[in-house]
Amino acid sequence: MRLTQGTFSFLPDLTDEQINKQLTYIVSKGLSANVEYTDDPHPRNSYWELWGLPLFDVKDASAVMYEISSCRKAKPNYYVKVNAFDNTRGIESCVMSFIVNRPANEPGFLLQRQDFEGRTMKYSLHSYATEKPEGARY
């Protein structure tokens, strides 16, 4: 399967040149950016690991690109994403998020069903990769 979280996951994987253009957009909008990684891609996993703190007041896309490259180098078989944050009053949240690295093999999720009366069902998603311990998943 292909994990399609993030804004550009239905397009072919972004080249570094394409990533750089998106980072330039983030910088031009005065947003801050951070890099996060995980080997637990459950859609309700809200807290991927932080690759350092968000870069506030970043003036140059290359500073973000450098962190992406370092994170990829350290975590080649992890999902890595870039987020942009807007601290404008009334927004104060993430305003952009896209994946910039993914494991070579993505085994996907099992949909677990638990039957209850009246044909009601409790559903849960189970990531096949998380059957192995953290760090040994992909």
Binding site: L3, T4, P43, G108, F109, L111, R119, Y123, L125
Partner: peptide, 18 residues
């Protein structure tokens, strides 16, 4: 409601998205 939620959850599992 029951059939629609089967559809929602199955699709969520196939994409890893909410």
């Amino acid at each position: 409601f029951l059939y629609s939620m089967e559809g929602v959850n199955k699709a969520s599992a196939s994409a890893g998205e909410i």
